[in-house]
Computed example of a mutant assay.
Amino acid sequence: MARVAAPLSATGKQSTHPVDEVLPLPKLALYGFQHVLAFYAGAVIVPIIVGGALGLSTEQLVYLINADLFTCGIASIIQAWGIGRVGARLPLIQGVTFTAVSPMIAIGLGAGGGTAGLLVIYGAVITAGIATFAFAWLPPQGLPHDHAALPAGRHRHGDHRPRHRADPGRPERRRGRPRQPRLR
């Protein structure tokens, strides 16, 4: 992505774009605290839902929440700093997804619930993580090499006619009001 230079200020110096400027410390601390609170609420509710559905005790639920926060912290450090080719190297917080709540509850209840169900969930998550990490390095088979550069609404193999035209020899009929010319 190309960087756009910020406009020159009245003194002739190039000013900092508002997105790139560093906020004053009180405002920075307030926004950082708000970000952590938003992350914390999402990171804590998933273990509470899963633990409640599996029938875990209060001590086990506290352990599950602590394990969740710890792994989110480790994942955030890996994403922010990066290890080799792994990590975005951006200031972000790696959180928990609600997408996996229903499958985790189904897996845990299928294994009998409680601690036994939680152990099966841990095994499934670790196995899925290893498989995802192993398959992420493989090139996507079956996709054309220029798949990412393919414009929307176009055919794949050099035919750049819009897909909605049934007969290329016949002029397209417009329905509805005619388009107004754009002002430039």
Rank of each mutant, 00 (worst) to 15 (best):
E172S: 13
R182L: 13
I78C: 05
R165H: 15
R179C: 07
V120L: 04
G123T: 05
L37A: 01
I45R: 00
T11N: 14
A124N: 07
K13R: 15
L143H: 01
H145T: 07
G142L: 02
F133G: 10
L8F: 09
M1L: 12
R85E: 13
I130L: 06
V44I: 10
S57I: 02
P91T: 05
H147P: 02
H17R: 09
G158P: 04
V125D: 01
A53P: 05
V125M: 01
R165S: 15
L25I: 11
G82C: 06
G55I: 08
V62Y: 03
P139T: 01
V120H: 02
T71Y: 06
W81Y: 13
T132I: 10
T71E: 07
L37I: 02
D167C: 07
F133P: 03
L109E: 01
F33L: 05
E21Y: 13
G123P: 02
Q34E: 09
L138P: 06
A131N: 12
G123L: 08
Q141A: 15
T127G: 06
L118G: 07
L8T: 08
P139S: 04
P18W: 08
P162E: 12
V125W: 00
Q79E: 11
V36W: 01
A136E: 05
T58Q: 10
G153C: 02
A2V: 12
L23N: 01
I49D: 03
G82F: 11
R184A: 10
W81I: 10
A88L: 14
A128D: 12
D167W: 09
G52D: 07
G42F: 00
A2N: 10
L56C: 03
A43W: 00
L92P: 07
R182V: 13
F133Y: 11
I83C: 04
G112Y: 04
H147K: 11
R156S: 12
G42D: 00
M1I: 09
R161K: 08
P140F: 10
D146L: 08
R85D: 12
H157P: 07
P178F: 13
L69K: 00
M104W: 06
I48A: 04
A41T: 00
R179K: 10
P162K: 14
V62D: 05
G142I: 02
I78T: 07
R184H: 10
F98R: 04
L23T: 01
T97Q: 03
G176E: 13
A134H: 02
G51S: 03
G84I: 13
I74E: 05
H35S: 09
D68L: 06
P162Y: 14
A148K: 13
G12P: 01
Y122A: 15
L119V: 04
A53S: 14
V101T: 09
R174N: 08
A152W: 13
I105N: 07
T16K: 08
E59W: 14
S9C: 12
T127W: 09
W81P: 01
A10V: 14
V22W: 12
V96R: 01
A5D: 08
Y122M: 15
D159Y: 11
A75Q: 10
D20I: 14
G82A: 03
P18K: 05
V44N: 02
G142Y: 02
